[in-house]
């Protein structure tokens, strides 16, 4: 799975730490998600969706390996 959280975060002008605090996770977790090393749970994805005011599909995309 790929994501554009880094871009969305930049649009809102947030640091990794600020974003982490807003959704109640650690900065390292945000870093891992952005680097595609960790796939977040639905709850976390929906929290991000709420914060970015965009549907989850806009910033999380399935890639060829997921099929």
């Amino acid at each position: 799975m790929e994501n554009t959280i880094k871009v969305e975060r930049a649009i809102l002008n947030l640091t990794q730490d600020e974003l982490a605090k807003k959704i109640g996770v650690s900065r390292q977790t945000i870093n891992s998600i952005e680097a595609n090393r960790y796939v977040p749970s639905t709850v976390l994805a929906l929290k991000l969706s709420q914060l970015f005011k965009k549907p989850v599909n806009d910033f999380f995309k399935l890639n060829a390996d997921d099929y």
Partner: peptide, 11 residues
């Protein structure tokens, strides 16, 4: 627990 306990640390 960790200082910041989240779903990733649980995993």
């Amino acid at each position: 627990k960790d200082k910041v306990e989240d779903e990733m640390t649980i995993t």
